[in-house]
Amino acid sequence: MSEGEIRVRVMLPRALLEYSGGEDSVEMTAGTLAEVIVQLNSRFPGIGERILDDRGQLRKFVHTFVNQDSVSHLEPESVPLHPGDTVHILPSVAGG
């Protein structure tokens, strides 16, 4: 790993494993949540559409965390990542 490179881990939910070929944990270099999604879609074509809607926004019932912190309410471009972060992409709780 070169100096300044931001290596993060991305945890994928079961529903998206058909896109990732079964990989539920992916490592990559990314400085923002938006870059994570771009790289995921590059590696696993189609997975980006499952996470973002046609407007490029996180889907309504997709919940994202950086480590333990929810970032679903933020624009993916405005979510900075730091070396060693873990990004969780999860379905939000549906129903009551």
Partner: peptide, 29 residues
């Protein structure tokens, strides 16, 4: 799906296997 948006899928063997297109119908950003 409730969470992950819609897809159109095709089976050519009555459900044994399913394939997706490159990109589903979508509006302009």
């Amino acid at each position: 799906t409730g969470h992950w948006g819609p897809t159109i899928q095709r089976s050519m063997d009555f459900g044994e296997s399913w394939i997706r297109g490159k990109r589903d119908p979508h509006f302009s950003k």
